[in-house]
Design a protein around this nucleic acid. Structure first.
Length: 519
DNA sequence: TCGTATT
């Protein structure tokens, strides 16, 4: 396919060495990429030491390397161009990596293309920017705290621009769009970032802020994970998992007599000891953390038509749930001394069935709730809301799906079936009339929770919650695709207006791609 | 508030 982009047609000569290599694409290990072969010394491409690998986003999935090549060659000789594909399915991921031989070409391409042009069939403009790998940015990315909540990106830029070139500036915002009073600022270099810290940290107090401006290097991913684990351990009353005392266990057990009894029998059977159970459970929870700080839902729905027969959703459905109203931050609330998880799942729907089933199995005395959920059938039977057909629908589709096991957890996990292999989503969009747009999603819902919520209505071929990449926060909207329009309609009927916490879902057909696009 | 994808 030839891509027509009038603004790019500058008549630069073709780079013949590239095309001459195209017939021998895989000799350097990049099976799918547009690469140079090392076979002929005269054609071995050189790239600048400081060449920039670019990330290209918003690429139509029907365009491959050879389609994209002419578009990018306008700006210089291409060293490597690789469309990203799913490792298992080979599915085009809608983005690519591009490295020019010369750094200057990358800069030119970025400024000419980034957000400047929308490729056919796309709703948003092409993205051309340095790949994340080009410096994970963590040595030049600042966290800025104690900002005034009224300050905008531009305000922050003005504050920081004197110290260097700002590549990114993002105010952290909650789902309501309100500033959280902090931001990320990424410079082009570590030195610039350091200069900003030196000059600005503690230098002033913004109106309305409780203390002076905080300017520090942003946490690395590792630090962020560690911090979350610490927070979680702290809220569980265990700052160090290895320092668990029986006293803590006893306190929980006392409050949970029923479950303690279950557990006692388990323990007596030599199955687990309480300490191991507690530690294992904690590790599970930590392992279940995703970057949102939420319990990830690694469920893997594999069955097709999963609509339980005879399920009729209530006309005015409602999940009387604390979800979405309690500032859920990945740690369930611990009010009134209850084990944390209970309140979150009080609605009878288990947003994280795999995790929950798994955890509850080993850690009954500590976390077990009124719904031990040792097995799906027990779970359904014991759910206080099991009489509700919609809830039953959910209970009926719960399946085991486990997260990756921490190594230290291996010996315990052997008592359980291996988690089914992760099956990547094969398709994003269903046929016309099968795709739903959903908003007012609870902040903590991810793809899996979204899918879980819509499984009762049919075969969900895709579910996607939009996440702010800078903050990893859900944008509280997403898509669900079914394989047939009737399921989509049933889902709209049942779920539009579905109350969760303070919010009601909006569920409607996704706008057709070319909605208001003349020609 | 309409498919966001980073080897």
């Amino acid at each position: 396919m030839y891509i027509k982009m009038a603004t790019l047609a500058n008549g630069q000569p073709d780079n013949t060495s590239l095309s001459s290599n195209h017939s021998n694409p895989s000799t350097n290990g990049h099976m799918n990429g547009l690469n140079h072969s090392p076979g002929n010394p005269s054609t071995i491409p050189m790239k600048d030491h400081d060449a920039i690998k670019l990330f290209i986003g918003q690429i139509p999935r029907n365009l491959d390397e050879k389609d994209l090549k002419p578009l990018f060659e306008e700006f210089g000789k291409i060293y490597e161009l690789t469309v990203l594909k799913d490792r298992f399915t080979g599915m085009h991921k809608g983005c690519a990596f591009l490295t020019y031989c010369e750094r200057e070409s990358a800069l030119k391409a970025q400024s000419a293309l980034h957000e400047q042009k929308t490729l056919p069939g796309m709703n948003r403009p092409i993205q051309v920017k340095p790949a994340d790998s080009e410096s994970r940015g963590e040595d030049r990315k600042l966290f800025v705290g104690m900002l005034n909540k009224q300050q905008s990106e531009d305000d922050v830029r003005r504050l920081f621009e004197a110290f260097g070139n700002i590549e990114e500036c993002t105010i952290l915002r909650g789902p309501d769009g309100n500033s959280k009073g902090c931001a990320f600022v990424k410079y082009s270099s570590h030195a610039e970032a350091q200069a900003a810290i030196n000059a600005l940290h503690g230098s002033q107090t913004m109106p309305g802020a409780s203390s002076s401006l905080v300017v520090k290097f942003a946490d690395t991913d590792k630090e962020r994970t560690m911090r979350r684990m610490q927070q979680m351990a702290g809220q569980m009353g265990m700052f160090n998992p290895m320092a668990i005392q029986f006293g803590a266990y006893g306190a929980y057990a006392q409050a949970m007599q029923q479950q303690a009894a279950i557990m006692a029998s388990v323990a007596q059977g030599g199955y687990l000891n309480p300490m191991a159970a507690f530690a294992a459970a904690q590790m599970q929870q930590m392992a279940a953390l995703n970057m949102n700080g939420l319990a990830a839902a690694p469920m893997t729905p594999t069955s097709g038509g999963s609509t339980p027969p005879g399920i009729t959703a209530p006309a005015v459905p409602s999940i009387p749930s604390p979800i979405g109203v309690n500032g859920f931050t990945g740690l369930p609330p611990q009010a009134n001394g209850q084990p944390a998880a209970e309140a979150v799942f009080a609605n009878g729907i288990h947003p994280y069935p795999g995790v929950w089933h798994q955890i509850s199995f080993q850690e009954a005395p500590t976390f077990a709730s009124s719904k031990p959920c040792l097995q799906p059938h027990l779970c359904a039977a014991q759910s206080p809301t099991a009489a509700d057909p919609l809830q039953q629908a959910y209970a009926g589709v719960q399946q085991y799906a486990g997260p990756a096991y921490p190594a230290a957890y291996g010996q315990i996990s052997q008592a359980f079936p291996q988690p089914p292999p992760m099956i990547p989503q094969q398709q994003r969009e269903g046929p016309e009339g099968c795709n739903l747009f959903i908003y007012h999603l609870p902040q903590e819902f991810g793809d899996a929770e979204l899918m879980q919520m819509f499984l009762p209505f049919g075969n969900v071929i895709s579910s996607k919650v939009f996440v702010d990449r800078a903050t990893n926060q859900s944008k509280c909207f997403g898509f669900v695709s079914f394989d047939n329009p009737a399921s989509a309609q049933a889902a709209i009927q049942a779920m539009n207006g579905f109350q969760i916490g303070m919010k009601r879902l909006k569920v409607q057909l996704k706008r057709p791609k070319d909605a208001n696009r003349p020609y």
